[in-house]
Write a protein that binds this DNA or RNA. Structure first.
Lengths: 372, 372
DNA sequence: TTGAAAGCGCTAACAC
DNA sequence: GTGTTAGCGCTTTCAA
């Protein structure tokens, strides 16, 4: 029985001796032992070299003889040695972890982006800490603060940003590198992954207009979202360029939820002269619109056309079949993670970068010429 | 200008003195300073006590005078001191992080569960590390190994488990506390959160049978999933108890994906005598069924009834409106996180526990009497 | 090419 | 009640 306890060893030398015997006895790798993990010291002693040398070998430093190098690698795999990330992180002030600050993972737009981020981090041996904030300032601040305590290497903010108050509370100088996706913040400089909302909106509006729609309604996104603003601007620009008048009553506020879409749809339908097409700033709201139309037995697209933005999974289902603008979600996540990892590797010395992702018009079954 | 660099201080005493002056000069909290974070030593010196005392105060240990206690708290907030989680973790061999091992966050069943887990962890000051495995053995193993390096405090496995090979590769004795959701593993002992698949299936089958369906088809889930087995067993039991014969041709294999559901639907429809109802072991497959039925212009529920299991978000949409069995997803996540946190707090001394969650039959628009 | 030693920031054992 | 000290496992000067 090899049940040496950590506490047994009294003074340092004594302990070292113990360790050696434990190490040679257990061979952690395939592992008979209920033993402790091998440390760098175990490896060093097994090789008859100093821990510094082992460290140098494992870090691929030059000036180490081939023989030692080989020996060390041998013993490392023999003992099943893996460096303690905790100890390394402590020493190096790094965590090899990146936090993803997100409103709510349960929002169907998000998981794909998260997947892209996570895959990329994983390939680069980093971990993803998931932080749902529900966009609550308090939770956001407290989260980031606790992340700072953990020496988080960087932050990816998905459709989230910091207000000036939040930045102040957080102490800008302590913040790690940040990259934002789909939302800029004026109060901090960060890398940014942005969808080309302009071209996306233009494409969709072009589609609607080419179908001969004139009374096109728009449901806006969250006022605080830069993407929402861009999409609304795109709507207006397209209307103007097509020589169509923008009626205030054809523009509804929204907050990106299905309920908001449903409410807007009810409002539009109750208008004296309802629109012939409804363009929602995201798919979730378009889904809300479709739900109300079904309830009211309004035929889509015969009586009214509906379009969204994002192309979430649901939208492709034959029973939904929503015309929309596809945002390459996974790619956005990948781009963001790459940007961040590169910045971290550069020790935050890179100039700030912005990557623009091109969306794609997806024409499905919810749009058709008016009164068709 | 206060730009003392860490490196300036030469010997230990010198450095301590420097620190004190920095500390008193910067007041990190509202923070003029581009300064380093305050350490426990800064606080100790500001108070004129030893770091051990500060530590004791902050850990709420007894045997500290009220006066010191107060002073320490005062200086802590004055300096904006926050303990380094890295250092604490290193010292205590903990990370205050829990990993969630999951197939794919993009599967619509998962995000709600994740949310429940994350919320609970957050309340208890723990972080969630998200690990998508795509159920690939290699990625699972490598992930857990790297997590071990980081002193992960526990693992939550969502619809995932370890095979005996995986357990062997991982070295059971090194594994932290684990709780599984919706999937047991024979190869390790863990706490478990289980949906009552029996009662859920029974309720749904009861509904179908009370509607007078006799030719009820079933689409199975992944063979490796214990939940899938339980649901299939429930189907068979209900059929038998109702005195209905189970025809092999009415049972299709599946893997929980929409495509599998679609394939099964096509197969059923091409049968000489198609079933009057199709019960899929999860909603995603039911969605696949609905898609095919729409394509083939088969009316639901008039010509055929469809039911699923899980009640994912999509299923509630008016255009889908799927009859299903609701699994309380967020609750499962909460329960799992609680179980794990309690086990961790107990230093893994608790007996193993299993929590059973009761599902709920949700009757919507895809089921009706046959030929109605 | 290698090793000795210091130290990252914290906590716990023990002494006073 | 409080302080001293050692040490968690690693990397990094700096000296040999």
């Amino acid at each position: 029985m090899i049940g040496f306890k950590r506490e047994i060893a009294g003074d340092k030398k004594m302990k070292n001796t113990d360790r050696q015997s434990i190490a040679s006895a257990t061979s952690v790798s395939t592992s008979i032992g209920a033993g402790r993990r091998a440390t760098i010291l175990d490896v060093a002693q097994a090789c008859g070299v100093s821990p510094a040398t082992v460290s140098n070998v494992l870090a691929n430093k030059p000036h180490v003889s081939e023989a030692t190098r080989k020996l060390v690698h041998e013993k490392v795999s023999e003992l099943g040695y893996r460096a303690s990330a905790t100890a390394r992180g402590f020493r190096l002030q790094r965590s090899w972890s990146v936090a993803l600050v997100i409103g709510d993972i349960a929002n169907p737009f998000n998981p794909e982006v998260v997947r892209g981020v996570e895959d990329t981090l994983w390939e680069m041996n980093n971990n993803l800490i998931l932080c749902n904030t529900d966009s609550k300032s308090q939770r956001k601040i407290a989260y980031v603060q606790s992340l700072l305590d953990k020496q988080i290497d960087g932050l990816i903010m998905l459709s989230q940003s910091f207000t000036s108050d939040e930045v102040a509370a957080l102490d800008l100088s302590q913040l790690p590198p940040i990259v934002t996706i789909n939302r800029t913040s004026e109060f901090l400089s960060s890398d940014h992954v942005a969808l080309n909302n302009e071209s996306g909106t233009a494409a969709l509006m072009g589609h609607l207009i080419s179908l001969d729609h004139q009374r096109i309604a728009f449901i806006k996104g969250l006022a605080s979202s830069s993407a929402a603003t861009a999409r609304f601007d795109g709507y207006r620009k397209a209307m103007e360029e097509a020589g169509l008048q923008i009626f205030d009553e054809y523009v509804a506020g929204g907050d990106y939820t299905m309920e908001a879409g449903a409410a807007a749809a009810r409002y539009f339908l109750d208008l004296q002269e309802p629109p012939t097409a409804i363009f929602a700033a995201n798919d979730l709201m378009a889904l809300g619109v479709l739900g109300v139309l079904r309830e009211r037995q309004v035929n889509v697209p015969q009586q009214i056309s509906v379009a969204g933005f994002d192309d979430i999974d649901m939208s492709a289902h034959p029973l939904i079949n929503l015309t929309t603008v596809r945002q390459p979600k996974r790619e956005s996540g990948i781009a963001a993670a790459r940007l961040l990892l590169e910045r971290i590797a550069s020790k935050n010395s890179l100039p700030h970068r912005c990557i623009t992702i091109e969306p794609e018009l997806v024409i499905r079954g919810t749009t058709a010429p008016p009164g068709s």
